[in-house]
């Protein structure tokens, strides 16, 4: 088990190094930041001074190493546009994105699993079929369209919920701000969370349903019925646990993409999170911010998958012995 975890951690580090290389090469190959930072009136001396100051005169491997060294310590350099440390900017924005991702992830997982189990058990029921048919909408409509439709219905027509922003936030500790504690904060979370989580929810639901149907056909479910166990015990104890083994991997991947895809939702709802920051950074070729965002997303993806792999072994005893 320990060897298994060490091996997975090693692989994760390798992935991060490669992503780091990609992120870093942006500095080198996507335009010249000096051009953007200094205006038309620059002198040759200005350019040279800034180049030295930013360390851009050093050879590529040295720059990469310095970048990694900084990244490990959470130092991603200074934003070209705002002139503040990137880490500080991202930290300031992170709570908004993380809270949004948390709520929509929770929404996707809880509702996805519940509906998946329901549609699997009541396979031929009318309600289950209606749910299955309407789930196609969630899969096929693009996120921004869902967001706009929700805004039109609930903000413009009905006027129940705010159409943009985070509402009032309350600071916790030195840098975290939360929207969970105010009414307007909670209201503001509803539409973006649904928009962001709908696709994942329908995906999880359809996956749970097909896995569950597969599991319900297994001999051990038949044997459990032959032992006279109650339907509830069979469905929720025996079948659900077996269903979750493959589902967990996909959920892990999906949680990563919730954070990554938050960009679109954040843009639609003007949500003051990291995704919106990234979009703005692209517009201004603010490479340190882009690179840091890339690193952050990959750390999250890799971290979540590592946790999922370890979780896997806890659920499935066969892996525990094999590993």
């Amino acid at each position: 088990m320990l060897a298994f975890i060490i091996r997975r951690v090693g692989q994760s580090v390798l992935v991060l190094l490669i992503v780091g290389l990609v992120a870093f090469s942006m500095f080198r190959f996507v335009g010249d930041p000096i051009d953007n930072m200094l205006g038309q009136e620059r002198t040759i001396e200005d350019v040279e001074r800034l180049r030295t100051q930013l360390g851009l005169d050093q050879p590529f491997p040295v720059q990469y190493f310095k970048f990694l060294e900084g990244a490990v310590q959470g130092n991603f350099g200074v934003s070209f546009r705002q002139g503040r440390p990137v880490a500080e900017i991202i930290l300031e924005r992170a709570p908004a994105t993380l809270e949004l991702a948390f709520v929509s992830g929770l929404f996707a997982i809880v509702l996805g699993i519940a509906l998946g189990v329901f549609t699997a058990i009541r396979r031929d029921g009318i309600v289950a079929n209606v749910i299955m048919a309407s789930s196609l909408i969630g899969v096929s409509l693009p996120t921004f369209l869902i967001g706009i439709l929700l805004i039109y219905l609930f903000s413009v027509e009905l006027g129940w919920l705010p159409s943009f922003g985070r509402g009032e936030t309350v600071p916790i500790g030195s840098w975290w701000t939360t929207g969970f504690l105010t009414e307007s904060g909670l209201k503001a979370l509803i539409l973006p969370s649904i928009t962001l989580g709908l696709y994942q929810m329908t995906l999880i639901m359809r996956l749970v349903r097909s896995e569950m149907l597969e599991v319900l056909r297994q001999d051990y479910i038949r044997f459990a019925r032959a032992r006279g166990l109650k339907g509830r015990v069979i469905n929720f104890r025996h079948a659900l646990k077996n269903t979750m083994v493959p589902v967990i991997t996909v959920i892990g991947l999906q949680l990563g993409s919730i954070i990554a895809f938050a960009i679109i939702t954040e843009t639609v709802f003007q949500w003051p999170g990291v995704g919106l920051l990234f979009i703005n950074a692209i517009q201004f070729v603010d490479i340190p911010v882009m690179a840091a965002y890339l690193m952050l997303i990959s750390v999250m993806f890799v971290g979540i998958n590592l946790i999922v792999d370890i979780l896997y072994a806890f659920i499935d005893p066969r892996l525990r012995v094999a590993a």
Binding site: D219, A226, G231, P317
Partner: peptide
């Protein structure tokens, strides 16, 4: 269901698949 397992027991063909692997 009450009779199954209590008054009539059942044994299936394939012992490799008759038991739930996760319990």
């Amino acid at each position: 269901r009450r009779i199954r397992g209590k008054e009539i027991g059942m044994i299936f063909q394939d012992p490799l698949t008759s038991l739930n692997p996760l319990f």
